[in-house]
């Protein structure tokens, strides 16, 4: 028999496979970061946090893109599945965005000598965090409203469309962040091929970790919605039974309570 709870969601098997893949990839990435990759000459051991910092930043921005895309599809087609996807993406994205800010501060303290500076990428990430916070606050405050999905989708789309303008304006404002991946001259700061390999593995590990968390949160949200719908349907059925056939309705309810 088909799993009824799994009909509308990604089945539990998929999530378990992704969980296994996550464990393998994260272990591999940890090995590469702490054992395999050589220590960077100028910054020393602190530089190793970079291999998790950069993939987290990528996930933080990708997740907001997913919030906007899922929000757009929800407004276009109206299926609740898109709303649940947008919510799961926002919640997991907020987690990774916080991780970017924390790992960045940990790195900046010994290297720049300060926890925080109003550099362009730091500022952009902080604004992204604030946008996530606004989106999730709206969802929390409007939770009871039937139109919460639409309101959240509108905010998600406006905020995501705003991100390119934020990046440009803040970059013109000021920047001192190291351009590690590619500079304007086309050079990158990772001289050793082992560093590039480690970064790629860390990218894969963090991305798969995010997708796994996203799947888990998404299937919880789907199950919760299905439960609410079932509860609503049951209450309606009870009301109708007790209205039309008081005696028989009471019998059914008695049977249920047993």
């Amino acid at each position: 028999m088909k799993n009824r709870a799994g009909q509308n969601s990604i089945g539990p098997n998929w999530a378990s496979w992704f969980g296994l893949l996550t464990v393998l990839l994260v272990s591999w990435a940890l090995f590469m970061v702490f054992v395999y990759v050589p220590t960077e000459a100028e910054q020393g051991i602190v530089q190793r946090i970079f291999y998790f910092h950069v993939p987290c930043a990528w996930v933080a921005f990708a997740a907001f893109g997913l919030v906007a895309i899922a929000g757009f599809f929800y407004l276009r087609f109206g299926q609740k599945i898109w709303d649940d996807l947008a919510r799961a993406a926002a919640e997991t994205g907020m987690l990774f965005c916080s991780l970017v800010l924390i790992t960045g501060s940990l790195w900046a303290r010994p290297i720049w000598g300060t926890w925080w500076t109003w550099d362009s990428r730091l500022t952009t990430t902080l604004v992204l965090w604030l946008l996530y916070a606004a989106y999730l606050m709206l969802r929390a405050m409007a939770e009871e409203l039937p139109q919460v999905g639409r309101l959240a989708a509108v905010v998600g789309i406006v905020a995501a469309a705003d991100i390119p303008v934020i990046v440009i304006s803040v970059r013109l404002w000021r920047t001192i962040h190291p351009a590690v991946i590619i500079t304007r001259q086309g050079r990158h700061g990772l001289e050793d091929p082992r560093m590039i390999a480690t970064l790629l593995v860390a990218f894969a590990a963090v991305t798969v970790l995010w997708i796994w968390l996203l799947m888990l949160r998404f299937s919880i949200l789907r199950t919760a919605r299905r439960l609410t719908e079932l509860g609503g349907g049951l209450a309606e059925l009870r009301a109708r039974l007790s209205e039309q056939e008081p005696k028989r309705g009471r019998q059914i309810l008695d049977l249920q309570s047993r």
């Binding site: 604030l130 946008l131 606004a134 606050m137 709206l138 406006v158 440009i168 304006s169 803040v170």
Partner: peptide, 14 residues
């Protein structure tokens, strides 16, 4: 304010 201010930041800076 929570919704508006973060979105308005690029306009505020410029």
């Amino acid at each position: 304010p929570l919704l508006t201010v973060p979105v308005f930041i690029p306009a505020l800076i410029s």
